[in-house]
Design a protein around this nucleic acid. Structure first.
Ligand SMILES: [Zn+2]
Ligand SMILES: [Zn+2]
Ligand SMILES: [Zn+2]
Ligand SMILES: [Zn+2]
Lengths: 163, 163
DNA sequence: AACATTAGGGTTATAGTATAACATTTTAGC
DNA sequence: GCTAAAATGTTATACTATAACCCTAATGTT
């Protein structure tokens, strides 16, 4: 029976944000990485919703948010840091970025992307990575990373006829 | 035991090109789609190698090839047509395009991408699509399309220490 | 053949995404 | 405080993609 995971549910979203920020801080401290105010702010903006956000949208939000005008390199550098730390993922098909709910465990970027509401839900199945690696091995290919983007309709949009 | 599929082999590449063009012509005729000289030429250039090519690289090749100066919209329109017909795939992670070896059967874009030699090999396993769909169903997600890009080392580069 | 209709392509301008290169500020270790 | 390294600021530019408008070529009808 199909389930609605958090990103596809109505839920108390402020909890997502605060726990994501807390966990990010914890991980960075643990790793000796510096979650600076700017980086934290970008992460917070990314977590505003479960929808992937583009770099320029983030720039605009930063400007609104804090009267802090940032140029593209600034936001891209913050995004690079967050990517390196596994705190966000990049959705190539959308040129956009979304928060990772489980940054503590290293993993690849596998997402369900709803074309109707725009919500991105990370697929947390390990089987997927295993199947990918095994399929690649048949061709003698050594996998270093992979990225899966699945487009379609989330449970909510599906039931409300999201066409 | 790992195998080297065509794209990762040394092979008579002119055969890839000619058979791809022939099959494209056949499919388009069958479908009432028009494989115009420009579209055919772009497809031929895409098939020059098994490496994904960017739109602007294709523009440059067109210019060299035929003294035919084309502007971006021209090449993008040709690429759009080829994508619609399933004759090429887009590699989002590279902003580039590569020929499809099996355009007769509709399928999703699943690729092995060698970071050393740049060759792209399409993964033709159906199991992969099945696993993806089933995994998505667990979340109640209706899959419409998906895209998988696997980065790493092809058999050749792997054995010659492609780091 | 003349005509209308549609699709393909040419052209110009511009939007959207990302990075190079260099200057300045902040931070951490001594 | 001094120094070195890291982070951010700043300017310019590269790379990718599309909008809008026009013209020509192909197709189908009378
Ligand atoms: Zn994640
Ligand atoms: Zn939805
Ligand atoms: Zn294909
Ligand atoms: Zn290789």
């Amino acid at each position: 029976m199909p389930q609605k995971p958090v990103a596809f549910h109505r839920h108390n979203h402020s909890h997502c944000v605060s726990s994501a920020l807390a966990e990010a801080q914890e991980l960075c401290t643990e790793r000796g990485a510096r979650l600076t105010p700017l980086r934290r702010q970008v992460l917070e903006l990314v977590w505003r919703s479960h929808r992937p956000l583009g770099a320029y949208a983030l720039m605009d939000l930063l400007a609104e948010e804090s009267t802090r005008r940032v140029a593209p390199p600034t936001v891209y550098r913050a995004l690079d840091f967050l990517l390196e730390q596994g705190l966000i993922h990049r959705i190539n098909g959308l040129n956009a970025f979304v928060g990772c709910p489980t940054p503590n465990e290293r993993h690849q970027s596998h997402f369900l992307l709803c074309r109707s509401c725009g919500v991105a839900k990370e697929m947390e199945s390990n089987d997927l990575s295993t199947v990918i690696r095994k399929t690649a091995e048949v061709d003698g290919f050594l996998v270093e990373s992979d990225s899966l983007e699945v487009n379609g309709l989330c449970p909510s949009c599906r039931s409300s006829d999201g066409a």
